[in-house]
Design a protein around this nucleic acid. Structure first.
Lengths: 224, 224
DNA sequence: GGGCTTGTATCTGGATCCAATCTGTGGAAA
DNA sequence: TTTCCACAGATTGGATCCAGATACAAGCCC
């Protein structure tokens, strides 16, 4: 057996946080689809806890945009329509450049190397779920120098809320035109290395904007 | 004896929401200052409930940026430094124009009249707490046509988080230079009436930006 | 006297039980 | 056949009680 599970893993402090982590992963992986309901008792007995920490976890996830709560009606993963996702992307186009600008001055050399390492993994050709994870890691890594947690929280919320529709798009259209993403990532990374905030912002906005237009050209993603 | 506790007031659906509303009002009014701790039991017995709905309420307020929770250490109103507030204002400068653009096409004639009514109240000269409330109402009213709740939630979070420091500034500097705010509001309102999104965005950004620079020129606000 | 330890009070996190609300299914009437 | 209503199971919200963690203060050792 591996030792990992027996070690006093950091984060074992609160059961609600472990439950939140579990549900978060399942929603982001797509195991729980938009519109699907999450029953407290089911989660509680699956993870061997009572419903109290499950409720706390659901509140956390609600703050992260991963579930929506309705009084006396429970929790479900939000189902968004085309218009809402478009607005979320327009929010991304405005917020993420700010996060990048705030982060850039504090990015160390090793941070940049880590970002480049992620991009190299992406370029080796990966399947859709792995790409989604790595792409998220790539961008969030560029914001790692950002000190304000409200800014990071906003960015994370936007990524969370749009994750399912990015996956739906890639599952339908396949990983085609992947070279565009790689080019955009490389240009962004180069701008970061040159410490050129203007260019970095330009490439980032273009990247997000192009993705938005790609998604909104495929309304079939939003009608399941 | 007061009747309040016995009446079946509308909105009594969930105790946690009433508790959240109570705490929200107290924090926004400044009765609970940044850095101050909120003990669950104290709130529970003051409002005649158990600690469970209080915990739910604190989670809600955490999502709204009004309190911060630390595992096993409880809840407290976040204390922000000058740099964090500056970033929050830069977020406002980017997010609120988007909210305005999304809202404008759906603003009715009566919406605009309501906004103008709020501005007329402001111009009649009010004390600081009333101004803070009316100013908040004014701007949120201009975003009322916005359909995306995530966008409205983001805007609300930013207003919540900066509320205390806006008040601190006005309490120290008095309501001086109030004519500038009125001019900005009038120009914004006129642009809305003309349905001129570009001008509206311009005046809004200028309004927020000027406020940011005013606040960051008074570091004494952040050192209590 | 200063720093560390220890013990106790206080507070938060979680489990169990009860009340209130919702949901969905079946039947009765138009 | 369709629609409305009522009832029962399922599900969430809240109260009470217990366990674990934190914080503070008194006491001890150096």
């Amino acid at each position: 057996m591996d030792v990992m599970s027996s070690v006093v893993d950091p984060g074992a402090g609160a059961a609600s946080e472990r439950i939140a982590a579990d549900l978060r992963a399942r929603i982001l992986m797509g195991e729980i689809a938009p519109g699907e309901r999450i029953r407290q008792e089911e989660v509680a007995e699956r993870l061997g806890a009572s419903r109290i920490p499950v409720r706390e976890a659901l509140r956390m996830l609600s703050a992260e945009g991963l579930v929506e709560l309705e009084t006396n009606k429970g929790a479900r993963v939000p189902r968004l329509d085309e218009r809402e996702v478009e607005v979320l992307y327009r929010m991304r186009e405005r917020i993420e450049p700010l996060a990048l600008i705030e982060s850039m001055p504090h990015l160390s050399e090793s941070d940049l190397q880590r970002i480049e390492g992620i991009q190299e993994q992406i370029e080796q050709g990966v399947d859709v779920p792995t790409f989604l994870t790595l792409d998220r890691e790539f961008h969030l890594a560029t914001y790692a120098g950002c000190a304000t947690d409200q800014l990071l929280a906003s960015v994370t919320r936007l990524w969370n809320s749009t994750q399912h529709y990015r996956r739906a798009f890639m599952m339908i259209n396949g990983p085609g035109r992947q070279w565009i993403v790689n080019a955009e990532h490389r240009l962004l990374l180069d701008a970061l290395t040159r410490n050129d905030a203007e260019d970095a912002e330009r490439y980032l906005v273009g990247h997000i904007r192009r993705t938005r237009m790609e998604l909104t050209k495929h309304p079939e993603i939003f009608t399941p």
